[in-house]
Design a protein around this nucleic acid. Structure first.
Lengths: 139, 139
DNA sequence: AACAAGTTTGTAACGATTACAATCACTCGC
DNA sequence: GCGAGTGATTGTAATCGTTACAAACTTGTT
């Protein structure tokens, strides 16, 4: 599914800026923040405004096309993969890594009262990534 | 375990301000933010500074006595219960609710690479709480 | 071409958090 | 007891991510 198709599918008008932002997210699974995206797109879209990036990401999140990660207390990160998976953030290098999840286990794990309407689920791990763990052990 | 004992157990010097903050957290399972805590303690500790509340909560988090929740994009919330449980935040009224977890299921759920050193785990749900869901349905 | 509706832009404001320097409290050797 | 030194607290100022807002721009329609 292309960015344009995703936008159409959820009824969001496909401006060049929106396509560019979503395209970037779909091609880079690095969980970028707003500045990463802005810096990456600015060369190609010289008039692009940071505000537009913020607005677009909010819109895309509300539309369910991307998810906003609050794993990093410093700033929000974004992910165009909205299938069930967890995230690990390295507290040293700040890299965010995808963690696959066994789908069935989620229901088995949480005892959610029936009267609650869950709209999104986020599972975060914090710690040291392999590289930083290794570096720490040799220091 | 009292607040003073907890502080001693993890080697944090027990100043009146620190005891007050931790005491408050241990007695109120409302997942307060900094301003909630400050507002609650200020009458009894007129010289208390917001900065001290921030500093104390950071120290307590680093010591593992409390956990900092990043479930609310607006501000951090704090929880003196560091046993395994998830959190649900109502996107309408902003209330944070504890969700019990079946401990065994966590391992079954996440496929964490062996070389990663996980230091903390947070599971967040977002949606409508029973009261707000009901209100929404009747509107 | 004129208009309306919605989008983008840039700047200004906001608000949570942190930095910093001054003051304060407490302990320890005298 | 007393002053130095260490660490804690305080208040203000700065920082920085994000949002509000108003003006300029696009696009589709008559």
């Amino acid at each position: 599914m292309t960015a344009i198709e995703s936008l159409a599918a959820c009824g969001v008008k496909a401006s060049p800026q929106r396509v560019a932002v979503l395209d970037y997210l779909m091609e880079h699974h690095t969980h970028p923040n707003v500045d990463d995206i802005y810096a990456a797109l600015h060369p190609d879209y010289p008039t692009l405004s940071r505000t537009t990036v913020y607005n677009t990401l909010r819109l895309l999140t509300e539309s369910g096309v991307v998810q906003t990660l609050s794993i990093d207390e410093r700033n929000a990160h974004y992910d165009a993969d909205v299938t069930l998976h967890a995230h690990f953030i390295c507290t040293a290098c700040r890299t965010i890594i995808d963690i696959p999840l066994r789908e069935a286990a989620l229901d088995a794990m949480a005892e959610l009262p029936r009267e609650m309407q869950v709209e999104s689920t986020q599972l975060y791990f914090r710690g040291l990534c392999p590289a930083c763990k290794c570096r720490a052990e040799h220091a």
